[in-house]
Design a protein around this nucleic acid. Sequence first.
DNA 1: GATGAATGAGTATTCATTCAT
DNA 2: AATGAATGAATACTCATTCAT
Lengths: 191, 191, 191, 191
Amino acid sequence: MSPRTKEQFDEIRSERKARIMQAALEVFSEEGFGKASISKIAGRAGVSKGLMYNYFKSKEELIETIFIDAMTRLMSGFEVNPKTTPSKEEFTLFIKKSMDDFKNNLPYWRMYFSVMMQADVMHKVEKELFEFAMPVIMMMAKYYESQGFENPLAKARLLAATLDGIGLNYMMDTENFPYEEAIDMIIEKLI
Amino acid sequence: MSPRTKEQFDEIRSERKARIMQAALEVFSEEGFGKASISKIAGRAGVSKGLMYNYFKSKEELIETIFIDAMTRLMSGFEVNPKTTPSKEEFTLFIKKSMDDFKNNLPYWRMYFSVMMQADVMHKVEKELFEFAMPVIMMMAKYYESQGFENPLAKARLLAATLDGIGLNYMMDTENFPYEEAIDMIIEKLI
Amino acid sequence: MSPRTKEQFDEIRSERKARIMQAALEVFSEEGFGKASISKIAGRAGVSKGLMYNYFKSKEELIETIFIDAMTRLMSGFEVNPKTTPSKEEFTLFIKKSMDDFKNNLPYWRMYFSVMMQADVMHKVEKELFEFAMPVIMMMAKYYESQGFENPLAKARLLAATLDGIGLNYMMDTENFPYEEAIDMIIEKLI
Amino acid sequence: MSPRTKEQFDEIRSERKARIMQAALEVFSEEGFGKASISKIAGRAGVSKGLMYNYFKSKEELIETIFIDAMTRLMSGFEVNPKTTPSKEEFTLFIKKSMDDFKNNLPYWRMYFSVMMQADVMHKVEKELFEFAMPVIMMMAKYYESQGFENPLAKARLLAATLDGIGLNYMMDTENFPYEEAIDMIIEKLI
DNA sequence: GATGAATGAGTATTCATTCAT
DNA sequence: AATGAATGAATACTCATTCAT
């Protein structure tokens, strides 16, 4: 009976950490940040309350970690290549794909918007958020510049804001909001 | 000798009520609904916790009252006339004026977005929100229709979503977001 | 316009005091002591909260006053004459009449039992309670003595206890408890 | 190294639970249900407020649990055998034993009477109370029937009421109430 | 590493009582 | 005398966090 190797421990750790984070994401998105309790998350993850603190120093750290993880996951869909400038077709495809991605990750986005509204959490996460968002914005700006638009950064930020607005409205009124049409119009008018 | 007159009491009441609502608005907008506690609001208003319940039966009632008050205040800026359809100039002016209004009422809007994110609070004010928002959306749709656009309702919802997105981004990054430019572009592209 | 005379003031005072006590009794018996609030009582009496304290120094004093008033009212039904000893017929009639009285004053009795259970209130009122109850017990003892029973005081206390028990059970299960039969049996067996 | 075993946890839990229930019983019986606060009970049990909710979901659940526990304990003394009908000697013994039991469990009985007076609490435990009390009443009725008495159910209820009354009076005036004599008289007159 | 018992500060809400007028 | 606004301590309950084992 030999003790577990360091590798085995690490594996257990990261598997369990993932499980906790998954549970936390679910609970956050189901109940909102305010009502999501450590107990419930621990229960959902099949882990004791005490053990949670072995993986995350505090609820705050859990939130931050989750948020950054979610961002990473979401932004990875954007596949921004900082070296090249997309063509119109590529850019259009990028928007379509991104918005498609959005629909497939509503829980993450719900959390994203929820966090954005909580001034205190927001501040903790601001830096990371900008790190993720900036490359996308810059890519958009580069695209607009390449197409000869003036004030490309402003255009990029407007586009991003518009996509935010569409996402938000879709989230709030999933049944009735004309999601596909809105995206098509945006592509037609703003790209 | 004699008790205070009804007028005196009414004056005290409305002065205090206003102070409480102002404090509540501030706290809600600074901390979000989740973390805004009755204690904090009472403290900010310079009033005892107990007194709060003299003016509002519950936290819920306070939230609703504030929200409806804020909505009324905000929507009054929109001056929607349900009988007539605006011309392009009028509609443009309406958008500009509305967005100008937005800048002057950031605290209220912060609360508006905060509410939109909290499913539970949202449900309580859903009815009022739709009562306020629907006439605006319908007016926008009528405008698009009169201009010969197809799918005017979808266009109207997209416009509203876009304005939401601009507001949200301006709120989150007041320093850098190109607010005026974004509005001008919207007017140029979507109207 | 002459000022009111002292008599007029006194009249107002005692009329109002009676109104407050009536309201308090109602509220106590409807909601129990625990949940009966000064506000509610004041409202029911058509009087301001502040004024209540002009008539009763505290809620405690109000309770005591009410209780003693209720006792006086209830015990007056017993018409105990300390000088004479009742005959068997008189005593039987006394019991029947008393128990009849009980049915007509359920709210008072509910309060009586309710108070009896609250150790703290009980202590305040103990003296008065005994002042009222003792003459009745003594009369009962005298009756038993006159009938040649041994240990008349114990018999009297047992009778009083039995009547308490019947009242209590009737109060708790008014629908099903065989009130009249129980009294008839008591009269047959214990008198 | 290893967490406590399930057995250790169970032991801690039941030891603590017992301590809380004991404290609750004391406080309930001293102060009545109305004034017995969770704080006071926690303090008496030497336990934090929070921990109480680890063992009982709510004050209501605590009350019910205590009450049912007390009833079970009390009624176990009655040893009712639903199959057989007691002889006069057995029945007499049963009454004596029951009333003896009563003296040894005054705190429980204080709580019992206290509950009976509080309409709201009463409703919560009504079902349990009747489940416990009914077999006893029915056994009493069967006894009376076997002895050839008419209206045996009414007689049974009267007997129960009388015992209630004796208990109540003993509780209120332990010093002077002639408990033993009263029981002897009851056995002589009502059995 | 792992457990869940335990804590204590926090939450919304209620209410007897005081007090300026 | 009369009012009701105002207070503050109390209530039941929650929950992030710590800690003995």
